[in-house]
Amino acid sequence: MAAGGDHGSPDSYRSPLASRYASPEMCFVFSDRYKFRTWRQLWLWLAEAEQTLGLPITDEQIQEMKSNLENIDFKMAAEEEKRLRHDVMAHVHTFGHCCPKAAGIIHLGATSCYVGDNTDLIILRNALDLLLPKLARVISRLADFAKERASLPTLGFTHFQPAQLTTVGKRCCLWIQDLCMDLQNLKRVRDDLRFRGVKGTTGTQASFLQLFEGDDHKVEQLDKMVTEKAGFKRAFIITGQTYTRKVDIEVLSVLASLGASVHKICTDIRLLANLKEMEEPFEKQQIGSSAMPYKRNPMRSERCCSLARHLMTLVMDPLQTASVQWFERTLDDSANRRICLAEAFLTADTILNTLQNISEGLVVYPKVIERRIRQELPFMATENIIMAMVKAGGSRQDCHEKIRVLSQQAASVVKQEGGDNDLIERIQVDAYFSPIHSQLDHLLDPSSFTGRASQQVQRFLEEEVYPLLKPYESVMKVKAELCL
């Protein structure tokens, strides 16, 4: 049975990233139509530049190519590739079939990587351009969430054990800070992308030097003109047959890092959902379990974690691919890159769409948070109580021993009897502590235990987050809708 299948058929496997999760716009960027249309555009740009620099290419040939950029006979191309065992030459023939007058000058002087690699770089750039505003929107939604809850005390956790208090907004800023680093890295790697350009079979530009009869300047002009037509500021000066596969490492490393950030955020949300302090959106008709109707599973956060793990592992592909590119190139890269580049971007696209949807509907339960604080705060307040007693004339050592005994009794009630923490009640009825009984409410005010959390939130948002989001103001209103 021949390899390949009808990918629109229910009898043929289709990647869930495309069929179930990723956005239509990201799927289109990695589609065959987008790819092969870009090949034709690159052939047109090459012909236009070659004509401008004096090669015998007519206006009629150029116009014929322009008129057929979208006229792609995919069936013919597939048949040609089956016959020739070469995808680029299959599309040269297919393009030439609908451009008979231009057929002889299509791909003039070029090698397969002229269309293959340059198209990949265009796709990487455009895919990054799709991700950047999506990530900015996630940051914006979380920034709104953090600002609104900047002063809401909550129990902090280290080692997932109760620690000092923080605020809900401050905790959210930990998430935002990681995503801001990801946004900066995505922008950097996007701006650092260079075009492969017009380089020939081993990167020496020998074929173009021959076409222009040894004119170095025209060869350099050709490279520059096509690079500018493709919208790049610069091209690699040095290439082998391909652009260095280190570029793929750079791009997928940034995406993998984004995956790590999203995994951490969504894990926190899942843990908070278990504590009943916070939940992701839950639709009115949504079913959490087929057997347990009360369940409210954090399905979206779980999906993000599941896909983020996949995204983090994909960076190993370009690392290994770059390491086995012998001399000017081997074909070890080809099949692998067809999979890992598309999957990385479709996965990143999915987790950003999902995280935006989550961040637009996060639900906080202040009463649950308050109750958990009441359970733990008495123990945390013991040092403040000791200091207040010393100020009232008591002995630190005597007070410490009193607190120690009462704390152990209260802990026994919590752990052995399943009761509430009654340390404060014990202190309130103990005559030894009568000098500070009137101060206990103040000493137990949760806001006095959150330090500068709310001020940190305000400063972080104003100095770091809002300036970073400013270039994306025009796209901030787009909502994230999930079908599944």
Rank of each mutant, 00 (worst) to 15 (best):
K295Q: 07
D144L: 10
A230L: 01
V413C: 04
D248G: 13
M299W: 06
K101F: 11
Q41V: 06
D178I: 05
R396F: 00
R194A: 02
M387F: 14
I57S: 03
Y13P: 15
H107S: 02
L362N: 03
R190F: 02
P281A: 06
M181I: 06
Y34S: 06
N68M: 12
L468H: 01
L443M: 11
A322G: 10
E383W: 09
L362R: 11
A163L: 04
T321S: 05
A22N: 12
L69M: 02
N126G: 07
Q41I: 07
A235I: 02
R149T: 06
A49D: 11
D317R: 06
K187Q: 01
L165W: 15
Y432V: 13
S289F: 00
T52F: 01
K229H: 05
D6K: 14
T354A: 12
V324A: 03
L130W: 08
R270D: 15
H97A: 01
D441T: 03
A344G: 11
A49Y: 00
S434A: 07
D182W: 00
L186S: 08
R303S: 09
L319A: 01
T382H: 10
L174Y: 01
H310Y: 08
E463I: 01
H437R: 05
D144C: 13
I106D: 01
S289R: 09
K415D: 15
F157C: 01
A127V: 05
L423R: 12
I123P: 03
I436A: 05
K66R: 06
V457L: 03
P298A: 09
M292R: 11
M278E: 09
V390D: 02
R303V: 01
L468V: 00
A431R: 15
G451V: 10
H107D: 05
K284D: 05
R329W: 02
H400I: 11
H159K: 10
F74P: 02
A480N: 14
Q161E: 04
F160R: 06
I249K: 15
I238V: 14
L252Y: 07
R309E: 05
E279G: 05
Q41R: 08
Q455C: 00
V262R: 06
L482I: 14
Q210M: 01
E79P: 00
V414D: 00
Y21A: 10
S407E: 15
A273M: 02
A136S: 10
L341Y: 02
F212K: 04
T330K: 03
F379N: 00
M225G: 03
G203W: 05
I105W: 00
V251D: 11
I287R: 04
Q184P: 02
I105Y: 00
F160Y: 02
L84T: 04
L211R: 06
A103P: 01
D117M: 04
V251A: 15
R374W: 09
H159R: 03
G203L: 03
L124D: 09
H97M: 04
D117L: 03
R329H: 12
L179T: 09
E48D: 00
K276D: 14
K246M: 05
R452L: 06
W175C: 05
V315I: 07
I403V: 14
Q325A: 08
R396S: 01
L211F: 07
D248F: 02
A163C: 02
G214P: 00
A22P: 10
L484W: 12
Y243S: 07
G156N: 11
I238G: 00
E81I: 09
H86R: 03
L423G: 10
R372V: 13
G156T: 02
F212L: 07
T350K: 07
C113W: 06
V254S: 09
G418W: 02
T450L: 10
F160D: 06
A256I: 13
T166C: 06
L482H: 11
V92Y: 13
G231S: 08
D349R: 09
R125E: 00
N336V: 04
I287P: 02
L84W: 07
S306K: 13
A344Y: 00
G451F: 05
E228Q: 14
A146S: 05
L271T: 08
T94C: 07
H93L: 08
I287A: 07
I176H: 02
I122G: 06
G104E: 02
L443E: 02
A335N: 08
T354Q: 14
D117A: 04
D398H: 13
V138M: 01
P10H: 14
C399K: 05
Q221W: 08
C399L: 07
I62L: 11
R452P: 14
L46F: 11
L272H: 03
S9V: 12
Q61L: 08
K66T: 11
V405C: 12
G240R: 05
D430L: 13
F36Q: 09
I139D: 00
S334M: 14
P293L: 11
I385H: 03
V368E: 11
G259T: 06
I373C: 15
I249A: 04
G5F: 08
K246C: 09
S67N: 12
L179P: 01
V189W: 05
Y34D: 09
G116F: 05
G361V: 14
A2F: 09
Q325M: 11
L44Q: 12
L255Q: 11
G116W: 04
I385W: 08
N297I: 14
T321C: 01
S151P: 06
T382N: 14
D398C: 14
L165C: 01
D117R: 04
S140D: 11
I72E: 05
Y466M: 13
Q325C: 10
V168N: 07
A335C: 03
E70M: 14
W45S: 10
D248V: 13
K66C: 00
V219S: 02
I339P: 09
Q375E: 15
H442N: 14
L131C: 01
C173A: 03
R234E: 15
L469M: 07
C98V: 10
T242R: 03
A431T: 06
T58G: 12
T227V: 14
W43V: 08
H159S: 02
M225Y: 15
G54W: 06
A344M: 00
C266V: 04
Y114V: 03
K415Q: 00
R374Y: 14
I57A: 12
W326C: 01
A47M: 04
E417H: 13
K224D: 12
Q439S: 11
L482N: 08
A291C: 04
S23P: 06
Q320H: 11
I436F: 06
R338E: 14
P133I: 13
Q439E: 11
W45E: 11
Q455L: 03
N185P: 03
F212H: 05
K470V: 10
T52Q: 11
D333S: 09
I105T: 09
D223S: 04
T38S: 09
E401S: 15
F95Q: 05
A335K: 09
K82N: 09
Q456R: 07
L252K: 04
K66F: 07
Q356L: 08
A344L: 14
R85Y: 04
V189D: 12
L355R: 00
C483F: 10
Q439F: 05
L211N: 15
